[in-house]
Simulated assay, not measured.
Amino acid sequence: MNFENILVEQNNSLATITINRPKKLNALNKNTIAELHEAFKALESDENVKVILLTGSGEKAFVAGADISEFAHFSEEEGGRLAAKGQELLFDYVENLSTPVIALVNGFALGGGLELAMSCHFRIASDNARMGLPETSLGVIPGYGGTQRLPLLIGKGKAMELIMTAGMIGAEEAKSYGLVNYVVSQEELLPLGEKLAGKIMKNSSVAISKAIKAINACFTDGENGYQTEINAFGECFGTEDFKEGTTAFLEKRKPDFPNK
């Protein structure tokens, strides 16, 4: 896959997407969002890909925000369409992928950058990472899911404070709120992502995709998460992975999942 603003690498079952606009601190523009959508779509359809890592190029930024120059003169209608299209193409799309996506937050994750990291299934950060939603300092609010995902991850009160003050928090503070799972040095960030991906890839990709769906249902209005879990649990019994997993357990050996 050849793109202008992102790099995609695949090493066996692990894929890595790197947002590659270092001169713009990897800021998101329309083209980058479209390229990310195409990359995630292609990797999701590739049965060999079991985990996707998402990061930014360089050591300064994961994604420093959206490219403000693209929408500074938008009308109300254009602004609404921008948010709707972005959520559909990328942020909601990533959250609902059946392939696990881990964000490697290397530096600034601000505005749309933090919103993108939050749409991933979980996050790890380098110790120089700085995170925040500064949109109110520009006279606007987060439009790519930030007002929804941040309270779910860190609680309403702290989310209100961060959004209203347009403030930033460091990696350790983000970890204390549950926004990121681990904080390591820049040098350790990719190895830790690969290590966690390796642990995930040992398990049934079919079961993991159903777990993602069930967990997301807990946070979806109008959906009964418990019922979603019950349905997904039952569906697992009809998979080849379930047969292999239970057989391997009873035979006291490691499973070799066909991922079907």
Rank of each mutant, 00 (worst) to 15 (best):
M1W: 01
N2H: 12
F3V: 04
I6D: 11
I6Y: 12
S13I: 01
S13K: 06
S13W: 15
L14D: 08
T16P: 02
I17P: 09
I19G: 00
R21Y: 00
N26Y: 00
L28I: 10
K30M: 06
I33E: 15
A34P: 01
H37P: 03
A39P: 02
F40A: 06
K41T: 13
K41V: 04
A42G: 02
L43S: 07
E44R: 11
E44A: 14
L54A: 07
T55A: 04
E59H: 01
F62V: 06
V63P: 02
A66F: 12
D67M: 14
E70C: 07
F71R: 05
A72M: 14
H73K: 13
E78R: 10
G79C: 09
G80I: 05
L82Y: 12
A83C: 11
G86D: 08
Q87C: 12
E88Q: 14
D92E: 15
Y93F: 15
V94I: 15
N96Q: 12
V101S: 09
V101W: 07
I102T: 07
A103E: 12
L104D: 10
G107K: 03
G107P: 03
L110D: 02
G111H: 12
G112L: 07
G113C: 06
L116W: 09
A117R: 07
A117F: 07
A117T: 03
M118Y: 02
M131G: 01
E135F: 08
I141C: 04
Q148F: 09
L150H: 02
L150A: 03
P151V: 04
P151H: 09
L152C: 02
I154Y: 03
K156Y: 08
K156M: 10
A159L: 02
A159V: 01
M160T: 07
M164H: 02
I169N: 00
I169Q: 00
A171W: 04
E172R: 13
K175F: 05
V180C: 12
Y182E: 15
V183K: 11
Q186R: 12
E188F: 03
L190M: 15
K195R: 12
L196M: 14
A197L: 09
G198Q: 11
I200T: 06
M201H: 03
S205N: 12
V206N: 04
I208H: 06
K210Q: 14
N216Y: 06
C218G: 04
F219W: 10
G222Q: 07
G222V: 10
E223P: 00
E235D: 14
C236K: 02
G238R: 11
T239C: 07
E240T: 05
D241P: 08
G245V: 05
T246V: 15
A248W: 07
F249Q: 10
L250N: 10
K254F: 06
